[in-house]
Every structure is written in structure tokens, then in C-alpha cells.
Write a protein that binds this DNA or RNA. Structure first.
Lengths: 199, 199
DNA sequence: CTCAACTCGGAACGATCGTTCCAAGATAAT
DNA sequence: ATTATCTTGGAACGATCGTTCCGAGTTGAG
């Protein structure tokens, strides 16, 4: 039997996620990864392969651990519009304060960088977008059934809008946008979605 | 009197804009710039300074030549809502087809990259955002005066939303989003803005 | 205890990074 | 024509890039 790994690959990958998330792939060197994880190059390459593979793995981990849980919470929430409001509140909080303040969203960042020319990365981006759209749609359908949306509101179309709005929040938050400004915009948008007859 | 430049700095900077726009600052080497412009390193450094200065100059040129004319057209258009619709149509066209298809917006890209840690870059991003917001607001005020917006529509707040929506369009278009999908979302959004009594 | 199987530390690879430097060439005022 | 001033080509700088390789160390089954 061979020797066994002297480190936790999962913990190491999490450190790599934070590195790529904050700085992007192009601005992050292997030396940065070595320093941040404490691993040496041999273990890195043996476990994860080269830099591109490592970035893909980190991006997948980000989506699985950070995006998808939020999407699930949104889609499965039975409250409708308040669920969407909570989703955006949590998003803005995470983007503007705490440990990851001003890091933006790793997926949004990947959209804008040279990373997206990798087909594997592109697939993750597309899937992420579809999941976000679908979660928004589910919440809107719930909202429509529960309390009724404003007349002429198609859930599918509004799901598209809210998804794009989330990308906008992610982008602007990275450049230091004020959390209250973002919240005000989101709140007003959601208000125009609700039934005019609602309380 | 000294010798005079053997090249056109403006044309060179335009080539640099396209380079940084498409690939981002981190993925673009000085050698790429040398190759694309046809200049040699000496002329480059003597004219523009180092890479960071060059990137800032390119970003400023992009905003001046690509963004601000569109903002002015939007703000000065007397038609109101159709002006906003045209703005987005032009945006989506430019992002999804033609010479710059799938390049996204250089300003949006700068938001998501490591470029934005440079205070000079950050200032351009903030100014760009303020100009976009202000142009949207002007068009919305015009629209409100002309034909009336839907009840409860505050131009300032909707200007914020539409600005964030534009960033979303820029991001997703870089990852290959379908132009018609984007158009449908924008059209539906603008429709919910118009007065319900309008034709 | 042996040994095959694997990990780890670290040196080293060629390539490319951004930048600097200098000699040669070009220009226009004197 | 001379000269001061700037531009240009191109070599060269040290640093860092991503990646590979090998010897030494560690493990557990036989």
C-alpha cells in the first residue's frame, strides 16, 4: 500500500477558491497557491493537475458550496416574493461586508475574464446561470400562485431580469458600491413586481 | 528641434484598447502590445509609460470614445422610453455581433478583474457608473414628462436598476448569451415601465 | 523485514514577465 | 553643416511564470 496524503485536499481547495475568487486566475501564480495552501508543488500537481484544472476545480467548488445552496433555498422557499427579497439581502450582505466583502462573485468574475475561454469553465458559467434563472422562476411562480404578481408579469421573463440584476450587483459591489444603494434598487424593483392590490 | 514620432499615438492606443478590452490587463503581455501596435518597447515606454499607465490610458479612451457618446445620445434623446430601448438594442447588438462580439464591456470587465484595485482605474469605473445612471435618469425624466411612467415609478430608482441591468447584459454576453434572450428581457422590463394607459 | 506504491521537499527547466539601457538614426533650428 | 534633442531598434536585465523531475521519506500489505 502506498503512502497516504499528509493534507486535506478539501481544505486546500477551499484556500484555492478564495485565492482565485479574490484575484482571478490570471493574476494568481502557482507560487501564491503554494504559499496559501502550505502544500508544495509536487503535491499540488499530483492532486489537482495543472493550473487550469485547479481553477476549474475551484470554480466548481465555489458553485457547489456557495451558489447552489442559495439557489435551493430560494427555489424551495414557500413564501414567494419575500424569498427573493431575502436572496438579494443575503447577496448584498455577502458582497459588501464580512470576510468576502468586495470580492464580487467568482462566477461573475469568471464571465469578465480570460477564464471563460476554457470550455470547461464556460459550461460551469452557463449551468450556473440556468440554475439561478430557474430558482428565480420557481420563486416567482410561487409568488404568483400565493398572492398574484402585478398584471402582465410573466415569471419566466422576470426571472431573466432578476438574474441579470444579480450579476449587476456582483459587479458593482466589487468596485465598492454602497450596500444601501444596491438594496434600495433591489427593493424598488421587487415592489413593482408585487400585486398592486397587495397590502 | 528633436526628432518627431514615427507613428500615430492615437492609432496605437486604439489597438491597445482592443487588446485590453478582449483579454484584460492581466492576460495581456507587453509583447502582445508590441506585436499588435507594431511599435517597439522603447517607443511604448517613452510615449505611454509602463503597463499600468498604458492600461489606464486605454480604459479612459474606451470610456471617452465608446461609452460617453452612447450616454450622451441617451440623455439628449427627446423621445423618452424609445431612447432607452434603442440604447439597449445598440448595446446588445454591439456585444453579440460584429467586430467586438463576445468581448463584453471593457469597463464591466475591469470591475471583475484585478484591475480595479488601481485607484485610477477605480475612479474611471465610478465615473462611468455615475454617467450611465445619470443618462438613464435623464431619459426617464423625459419619458415621465412626455407620456408618464407607470404609477409609483421613481426615475432615479429605475435609473439604478437599468444601469445594473446593462452590466448584467455585458457580463452574460461575454459568455455567449443569446442576443434575442437578452432583448426579450430588456423589452419586457421597459414595457413594465411604461404607462399602463399608453397604446 | 521487505518491498512496492505513493507522497513530499526542493532544485531546476525553458519561457515569458515588465522594465531598462544604449548605440544608431532622424529631425529641425542654428 | 553642425548640433542638440528626441526616437527607434534591439539586446539585456532580474524576476516570475507554469511545469517537470528526482531523491528521500513514509506507508501498509505480504
Amino acid at each position: 500500500m502506498p503512502d497516504i496524503k499528509h493534507f486535506d485536499p478539501d481544505a486546500a481547495l477551499e484556500a484555492v477558491v478564495r485565492l482565485f475568487w479574490r484575484q482571478g486566475a490570471a493574476s494568481t501564480g502557482i507560487q501564491d497557491v503554494v504559499t496559501a495552501t502550505g502544500l508544495n508543488r509536487s503535491s499540488l500537481y499530483a492532486t489537482f493537475g495543472g493550473k487550469q484544472e485547479l481553477y476549474r476545480a475551484a470554480l466548481r467548488r465555489y458553485v457547489e458550496q456557495r451558489s447552489e445552496p442559495a439557489f435551493r433555498r430560494l427555489a424551495e422557499d414557500e413564501r414567494g416574493l419575500p424569498a427573493i427579497a431575502d436572496f438579494f439581502t443575503g447577496l448584498i450582505d455577502a458582497r459588501c461586508s464580512g470576510e468576502y466583502a468586495r470580492w464580487g462573485c467568482m462566477v461573475s468574475n469568471a464571465h469578465a475574464g480570460a477564464e471563460n475561454s476554457d470550455p470547461g469553465v464556460r459550461a460551469v458559467l452557463d449551468r450556473h446561470h440556468e440554475q439561478l434563472r430557474e430558482a428565480m422562476n420557481a420563486a416567482l411562480v410561487t409568488a404568483d400562485a400565493r398572492e398574484g404578481l402585478a398584471p402582465g408579469c410573466d415569471p419566466g421573463t422576470w426571472a431573466d431580469l432578476l438574474a441579470l440584476l444579480a450579476y449587476g450587483v456582483n459587479l458593482r459591489s466589487r468596485a465598492g458600491a454602497d450596500a444601501r444603494d444596491l438594496s434600495r434598487t433591489v427593493t424598488a424593483t421587487l415592489a413593482s413586481l408585487g400585486s398592486p392590490a397587495a397590502p
